[in-house]
């Protein structure tokens, strides 16, 4: 449990970015998104359902992602989310912003 960083410890706003980045690979359902983030981060980032689904709804409301129903590999109905053009732009903005913050943190850490 120690190595898991909970949502509250994520930098604010990064969940949206992670979801958007995940969806850039292609449409995915909510469970898939959570799994993907967890796996790619080597279980460092664990996305909680209580944050994931409201985030997905909020982003739909903002028009960054859209959803439609489809079938999974093992023939189950699931809601798939995909990136909209607006979401793609948002991702670019967020990545740029994140890079700036990372660089800033790195500089601070480097001089210390």
């Amino acid at each position: 449990m120690d190595k898991n960083i909970t949502k509250s410890e994520l930098l604010p706003g990064t969940l949206d970015m992670l979801i958007l980045r995940t969806l850039r690979r292609g449409p995915l359902h909510g469970y898939g998104i959570a799994q993907h983030i967890q796996q790619v981060s080597d279980d460092v980032l664990q996305v909680e359902e209580g944050s994931l689904y409201p985030a997905l709804q909020r982003m739909q409301l903002q028009g960054w992602i859209a959803s439609e129903w489809g079938e999974t590999a093992n023939n189950r109905r699931a809601r798939f989310y995909r990136l909209t053009p607006a979401g793609r732009k948002q991702l670019e903005r967020e990545v740029a912003g994140f890079d700036r913050i990372l660089a800033a943190i790195a500089r601070v850490m480097g001089t210390a």
């Binding site: 359902h29 909510g30 189950r76 809601r79």
Partner: peptide, 14 residues
Amino acid sequence: RALDEEMRFHLDMR
């Protein structure tokens, strides 16, 4: 309905 189904799916998968 959609919300229910989505959550059921998630729980099933988990």
